[in-house]
């Protein structure tokens, strides 16, 4: 069946934007993973790149000294630094490695 050529852009834009609006209406649209970090309620596996070092310290319940030590972060790095920005400051830093290091550090504390 032959149709108007203009259906190509019209159908595409309606489908594309329609999906976005439908997702927004259903509450499925999120451009950030940021949530409130409750003290001592954060599991190491749930640490995100947008979190600051201070939020990890408070959320996991680990001391700043221990966090810096197990993750190899220099003491000069302020605790207000977001984890995603540490990749440029600390060699070979990754959020995945930090999660593992924090998990290993807190497991003995939790088992006591």
């Amino acid at each position: 069946m032959k149709v108007s050529p203009f259906l190509i852009p019209i159908v595409f834009i309606i489908a594309f934007l329609g999906t976005v609006f439908a997702a927004q209406r259903m509450g499925l649209w999120s451009t950030s993973g940021r949530v409130e970090v409750a003290p001592q309620q954060l599991a190491p596996a749930d640490i995100k790149g947008w979190m600051t070092l201070q939020q990890v310290i408070d959320g996991v319940g680990i001391s700043q000294e221990m966090l810096y030590r197990v993750t190899g972060i220099p003491a000069s790095v302020p605790a207000t630094t977001a984890l995603k920005d540490l990749e440029e400051v600390v060699p070979n830093f990754s959020v995945t490695a930090l999660r593992t290091a924090v998990q290993e550090a807190v497991t003995p504390l939790q088992s006591r």
């Binding site: 159908v11 595409f12 594309f16 934007l17 999906t19 976005v20 997702a23 999120s30």
Partner: peptide
């Protein structure tokens, strides 16, 4: 984030209906 998945879903639906218009119009 979720927004990336939603935009990808929109792209998939739009492309299955109307082809490569994303590249030319969006």
């Amino acid at each position: 984030h979720l927004s990336n998945l939603v935009l990808l879903a929109g792209l998939v639906v739009g492309t299955l209906l109307a082809g490569g218009a994303f590249c030319g119009w969006v």
